[in-house]
């Protein structure tokens, strides 16, 4: 299935949950409403024609314009086609619906995005820091992140 067909199918299912789509780039992507991520993901996984059962990667990105994004690279081991999903949120209200219930592999990717970018994945079963210490403050991969001078009262040497 080509990206256009996939997007058409999604639009017929959800209509306004599909915010935007772009095909003239090397890897076509769909922007999905961050509040309805989960139901879209379930259809992507379970629909006979789509069957995106393999969630390769979820990356969090800070676009430095007040937006944060989660980029989902999906693949179907049955139909061997790919699609890229994107969901955006604002820095003030960084909430995106979790897809950990849909793809088990998304669990740790979302924890990582929460840890480093600070996107809060709603309904995630176990959202806590994964790579950084539990008591770390701030989200290091945000573009406005300042390296802290103190960690737990200890001076960080440079």
């Amino acid at each position: 299935m080509t990206a256009e067909e996939i997007v058409q199918l999604l639009q017929s299912h959800f209509g306004d949950a599909i915010v935007e789509s772009k095909f003239d780039v090397p890897q076509p992507f769909v922007v999905v409403d961050s509040k309805r991520m989960k139901e879209v993901a379930f259809v992507l996984r379970d629909d006979e024609a789509l069957q995106f059962d393999y969630c390769s990667c979820i990356s969090g990105v800070d676009y430095n314009d007040g937006r944060l994004g989660a980029i989902y690279h999906l693949y179907s081991t049955v139909h061997r086609h790919k699609i890229v999903l994107k969901a955006f949120c604002t820095k003030e209200n960084p909430h995106i619906q979790s897809v950990a219930a849909v793809w088990g592999g998304a669990n740790w990717h979302e924890r990582e995005a929460y840890d480093l970018i600070g996107i809060i994945f709603d309904e995630h079963p176990d959202l806590r820091r994964i790579l950084l210490p539990y008591d770390w403050e701030g989200y290091p991969l945000r573009k406005d992140y300042k390296v802290p001078e103190f960690y737990n009262g200890m001076k960080v040497p440079y």
């Binding site: 390769s56 990667c57 990356s59 969090g60 990105v61 800070d62 980029i71 690279h73 088990g104 592999g105 669990n107 740790w108 990717h109 990582e112 991969l141």
Partner: peptide, 25 residues
């Protein structure tokens, strides 16, 4: 996953490491 903003340095690189994902199972 590389995001480029047209400058000489990568804007964002995410490495999807296989061991990370395999360990989560």
């Amino acid at each position: 996953y590389i995001v480029s903003d047209g400058s000489g340095t990568p804007y964002r690189i995410k490495a999807r490491s296989p061991a990370f994902v395999n360990l989560s199972v």
